[in-house]
């Protein structure tokens, strides 16, 4: 029986972007530019990922002095595992599409 997939393409995109450097802390604006998602789509996704324990958040001081702290994000171990599973799921799909 096929596994139920509740992950939207936008969530998949965010997971993939965060999984590129799983240990690095990322900011909302940078993620928005990188994924091409508007903040109106990105923030609800970040909120849901954090609610589900897939994303950890932290206030971080930017490298430039005198700048206010920013909210930064990175995947938790569970988030990394989910991103890897979804990336593996995407490969056979991509292969199928390439052969048709």
């Amino acid at each position: 029986m096929a596994r139920r997939n509740h992950i939207s393409p936008q969530t998949r995109t965010v997971l993939a972007a965060l999984a590129v450097q799983p240990q690095a802390w990322r900011y909302g604006y940078d993620l928005s530019k990188e994924t091409g998602l508007k903040s109106g789509t990105l923030y609800p996704l970040l909120i849901r990922l954090a609610d589900d324990g897939l994303l950890e958040t932290e206030w971080r001081q930017p490298l430039q002095p005198g700048r206010p702290p920013r909210h930064a994000y990175r995947l938790t171990a569970a988030g990394i595992a989910l991103a890897q599973v979804r990336a593996q799921d995407a490969v056979p799909t991509a292969n199928r599409e390439a052969t048709t």
């Binding site: 604006y29 923030y43 206010p68 702290p69």
Partner: peptide
């Protein structure tokens, strides 16, 4: 607060 800090940046 997170959104506000991001817009300021």
């Amino acid at each position: 607060e997170a959104m506000r800090a991001e817009v300021r940046a």
